[in-house]
Design a protein around this nucleic acid. Sequence first.
DNA 1: ATATCCTTTTGACAAAAGGCAAAAAATATA
DNA 2: TATATTTTTTGCCTTTTGTCAAAAGGATAT
Lengths: 197, 197
Amino acid sequence: MTKIDLDQAQAQILHIFNSIYPMSEALEKSIRQHSKLTTFNKKAHLLQFNEVNKSIYFILQGCVRTYYLNDDGEEHTSWLLTEGELAISVYSFYSQQKSFEAIEALEDCVTLELTHTALSHLYQHHLEFNVIGRYLTEQYYIESESKANALRMLSAKERYHELILRKPQILRRVPLGYIASYLGITQSTLSRIRAKI
Amino acid sequence: MTKIDLDQAQAQILHIFNSIYPMSEALEKSIRQHSKLTTFNKKAHLLQFNEVNKSIYFILQGCVRTYYLNDDGEEHTSWLLTEGELAISVYSFYSQQKSFEAIEALEDCVTLELTHTALSHLYQHHLEFNVIGRYLTEQYYIESESKANALRMLSAKERYHELILRKPQILRRVPLGYIASYLGITQSTLSRIRAKI
DNA sequence: ATATCCTTTTGACAAAAGGCAAAAAATATA
DNA sequence: TATATTTTTTGCCTTTTGTCAAAAGGATAT
C-alpha cells in the first residue's frame, strides 16, 4: 500500500472543493484542522448496522461497499466506492439516526475522515461551504437516480454492460458476488450473463 | 379546483424554508419576487424530452410524474409527486443539460415556479439559502436511495405493499399503469399482485 | 341512455431470474 | 509445492415476471 501523506491528501480534497466554489483561507484552515487520515484493513467495517454514521470518509486508497440486510439476512450491496469518492450511509449520516446499512472495506483502505460534528461546524461558520456541500449532494443524487432508473428500465444483462462501460475498474477489484448484488441480481445469474458474453 | 393565492402559496413555501434555516428579510423578499404561480392542465408537460429543465415547480395542487423513454419507446415512471413536493428532472435541472426525462401533469396542477436562473441568483446572493438547498437535496437523495434499494432487495409484491404503506393517496390518484412502471413492473404483473390480495 | 374512450383484469404462453448444490477455477497460506 | 480457502461457474428445476391480446369494467360526453 502506497504511503499517503496527510498534507497531500488534504491538498487534494481542498483542490476539489475549490474547483466547486472558491474557499476562504479560514475555511481551508478549518478543513485541515478537522480532517484526519484513517485507515481500515480489508473486511473492517467503517460503519456497523444500528450504529449512527458519524463520519464521512473520502477514499484516498482502496475500495468499500455499503450494504443492507433484508429480512432473510441476505446482504444487498448499494454502493461500490473507490478512490476520490465519498463513503457514507446516506440516510444515517444525513439524519444522524441509527443505520440500516453497513460500510465495509473490500481492500485495505486509507481515507480522509471528517466527522458530522466537524462538517456541521464548517457549514455553520462558513456559509460558502454549503455551496460545496449542496453541489456534491446534487452529484450523488444524480447518480442515485440513475441507479434507480437502471434497475427499473434495464434488464440484468443491460445493467451489467452499463457498469462495464462506466466503471470497468470495479469489475477487476470487487468480487462478483458483490457486483451481482449491486446490480440487483444473484451471483449465478451474473455468472450466466458473463458466460454468454 | 380550489382557488390558490400567490401570497399564501409563497407564505407556505417560506414557512418550509424558514423551518430548515431562518432566512433574512431580504432573502424572503427576493424569493417572493422571483416566484410565480404556474398552472398546468392534466396531461400538459412541465418538461419535454430534450428540453433543458429551466424551472423547479413546488406543487401546490395536483399530481405529476417524471418519466423516461427506453430504446423501445416504452415509458418508465421515475417519480410520482403531489402537493408539497418539488418537481424537477434531477439530471437536467442540476446540470442544465438536455433532459432524457419528461414531466407530465397527471391532474390539473397549480405550482409555484422558480427558475434555475432565479435559484442561482438566490444561492449566489444569499449564501444562507445554500443551507436550505443542501438540506432539501439531502432529503430527496435519501428518498432516491431508498427507491433504488427497494428495487434491488424487494420483490414486486413487497414494493407494492410498501408503497401502499408510505403513500396510500397515490394509489387513489394515479392510474395503475404509472404505478406499475414506478415500481419497475408491468401493469399485468401489478394487476395479478393486487388480485391475490 | 348509448357510444366512446380509457383503465384494469385475465388467459395462455414465453422469457428472465432465482434457489440450491456441486464442480471448477483462482488465490492465499503453510 | 501442496493444502486450504475463497471465488466463480454450471446443472437442474422452480418461481417470478413479461408479452400479447382479448375481455371486462368505469368514466365521460353527446
